[in-house]
Amino acid sequence: MQQEILEILTEIRPEFDFTQDIDFVEQGMLDSFDLVSLVDALDEKFGISISGADILPENFSSLASMETLINKTKNI
């Protein structure tokens, strides 16, 4: 799953390396519009609808946190 998330992130922000072990949001790699694009792409890719209440920076700070969010959303 993380590979698929990585492909989406790279499409949205091709200038950044998302394989780094850093906080994507804190490092300024993703702004609010990037998060919107990301949520839409993840919804589409994984057939989910991420709740607005879950669109928080900490849920998009790393590949692992996004994987956790997707799994959580799938199980609702």
């Binding site: 499409e11 091709p14 519009f33 694009s37």
Partner: peptide
């Protein structure tokens, strides 16, 4: 400063 692909996605989503 959006990449072209993001422009299209944002147009649809936003």
């Amino acid at each position: 400063s959006f990449p072209e692909s993001q422009n299209k996605r944002l147009a649809k989503v936003m």
